[in-house]
Design a protein around this nucleic acid. Structure first.
Lengths: 154, 154
DNA sequence: CCGTATCCACTACGATACTG
DNA sequence: CAGTATCGTAGTGGATACGG
């Protein structure tokens, strides 16, 4: 007997052919993304680069903070995010700035004032990313349930 | 003089008011995402959890490989991804399985045969994620250019 | 064929202290 | 206020060897 875990994405075909089932539309598109993302020992890949950028511990929060509140000063962000360290906020913002996702404006005053804002590029990224966030809020619970079942089974 | 780096997301308003400029539509939506994602010392957040899952080094590639090619055996994936180690492919697939994103089907044969496939959940995630990948392929070059300029300036 | 087990290198991150 | 500098730790991923 076959050990089958979970449910399949596609209705099981009793007749297995070499071609993929017709329900598998869009397949080629994902193949292309795979090929692009799979830059085995080649040059760097924009997709993986961008995922890497937004997927560290704080970048996503920083981006959505700026998208949600507009312009923010350093300590405003630090206060909003709550448990981020000064160091990590600096590092995060510097990285985002280096990628052209946020601007950093220094006002030569005493005490110093520094304002951060999303660039059009950063705003676009956030919009795309918010779609993924929507999906995550819709389906996150199901994933967590799967994880629980898995842990209980082990 | 103000030290201004990069370009701003919004046209500069000479008159600054307390309210955000009207071009900043969608602000509230992003505030909400921020609030949800910013689970400061609260329980876990589905958005961050899912980002964490797809943002390790190999999960994204594994998902798109399955989405692009349908059903794959262990060594087929390993061959397609190229420079992934056996250990990391196992770990990656086990994590995806635990989250209900892929199924793992063991055929009790000698030699053993194990097939992996996306679940509906995993397929949905990949579709959302592919939109982000599209954005990345469109805008990745610009980000890389920004990064180059930054490095040359330093 | 499809894994585990073990060890090791690297780096992301946090805590703390100090500065213009 | 808005950072830097330094150090310690924990987790991630690679190489290698072995097992059912």
């Amino acid at each position: 007997m076959i050990k089958q875990e979970g449910t399949l994405a596609l209705p099981g075909n009793t007749e297995v052919t070499n071609s993929q089932p017709s329900t598998f539309a869009g397949e080629k598109k994902f193949q292309e993304i795979f090929q692009v993302a799979n830059t085995t020992r080649n040059q760097l890949c924009p997709v993986r680069d961008i995922v890497a950028r937004i997927s560290d511990k704080w970048s996503m929060l920083a981006i959505f903070a700026l998208g949600g509140f507009g312009t923010l000063r350093f300590n405003e962000m630090k206060h909003k995010i709550g448990d981020i360290s000064q160091r990590m906020l600096t590092v995060t913002l510097r990285n985002l700035e280096a990628d052209g996702l946020v601007t950093r404006t220094v006002f030569p005053e005493i005490p110093p004032r520094v304002e951060y804002q999303l660039t059009p590029l950063g705003y676009g990224l956030m919009q795309q990313f918010s779609l993924l966030a929507d999906w995550a809020t819709d389906n996150g619970e199901q994933i967590l349930r799967c994880r629980q079942l898995q842990r209980n089974a082990s």
